[in-house]
Nucleic acid binder design. Sequence first.
DNA 1: GTCTATAAAGCGATAGAC
DNA 2: GTCTATCGCTTTATAGAC
Lengths: 201, 201
Amino acid sequence: MARRRLTQEERKKETRQLLLESAVETFAQLGFHGASVDKIAEYAGFSKGAVYAHFNSKEDLFLAILEQQMLLHVENIHQVIDQQHSLSHFIETMDEYFLSVRQENRTWSMLNMEFLLYAMREESVRHKWSTMITESVEQISKAIEKLMSKENHDSTLSTNEMAWTILSLENGLAIFYYISQDRVPLHLYGKALQNMLLSPR
Amino acid sequence: MARRRLTQEERKKETRQLLLESAVETFAQLGFHGASVDKIAEYAGFSKGAVYAHFNSKEDLFLAILEQQMLLHVENIHQVIDQQHSLSHFIETMDEYFLSVRQENRTWSMLNMEFLLYAMREESVRHKWSTMITESVEQISKAIEKLMSKENHDSTLSTNEMAWTILSLENGLAIFYYISQDRVPLHLYGKALQNMLLSPR
DNA sequence: GTCTATAAAGCGATAGAC
DNA sequence: GTCTATCGCTTTATAGAC
């Protein structure tokens, strides 16, 4: 009986995950309003009823993805930051990460924009998002500070200002990259970071 | 009779303008899908019928605003660029322009994001937008080149890359500014531009 | 837990009166 | 040109069968 319950729980969890993955894809492709619960369910191979068995509402489902995505992003930042030995290495990693996300996975890029717009409008989400961003900024700021102290660099920007600029540039470039893919210079993110973090000699 | 027709035409134009202004506000506040034709008409003091007397569809209305906004943006860039005497003056003007738009007029900031998301999804709009951006980039690039030749600066970035970075940063910072208004350093846009365009001495 | 059927509401767009 | 009334469709969410 214990075994049977486990199997059922596993199946439940799997369905939930399938629905989440479908929601990611559908929300990204059609936007929050364009993606109906029907379409999300259908894409996952279920009917609407299954969705409402796992989530209270369409918004609840959207917020579940948002939460998942937030944690992932913070984790990625941790991972990137902890493994850096030099500023140039840091820049290289950021540039690679940026390119891989944008090129290979336009879904996340789209969804990121959808979240941003949603966060702009919903006070509670905005607050959560703001907290997460501020944390990321602090982490990046500290990492830069550590790396810069090793190599004697100076700049007109504080490390905090640098961190805000780095994340802003990431989002801003992602938008243009999406709209005018072939016209935006490749590796511009990395080059711009170089220009900002490594003073020309 | 000629006079009577003129009055009617003027009234028609005025109504159209009122509808456009209402649409700007409503689309910004609620997004493309959230803003119903009913709400837009009501906010302007008319009924739905009036909207459909002036525009073929909701999308048509949205695109009319987009077009208007595009022209305005290009014009603003022209104006800013033509009046610059030095790089530092250029940076100052851009920073002021950025702050005034973001602080005084969150409506345009919101609408800009709405347009961007729309452009990401609609091929025809994306193409138009892409063309406009590329033109802006070229203009800014040329202006920077002119200003830099006066003052002997060198950089690891080409003027074209600088221009893309400037506009990307503007959009990226605008997003964060909207989400975490009080935490983003004031005048960061200007400082970041300084750091990029004026090599530290 | 997942299905089908349906309720209740909102949407874009049109028709016809004025 | 602007209004009211309405059509036709889609949506979110719920109820009940299995």
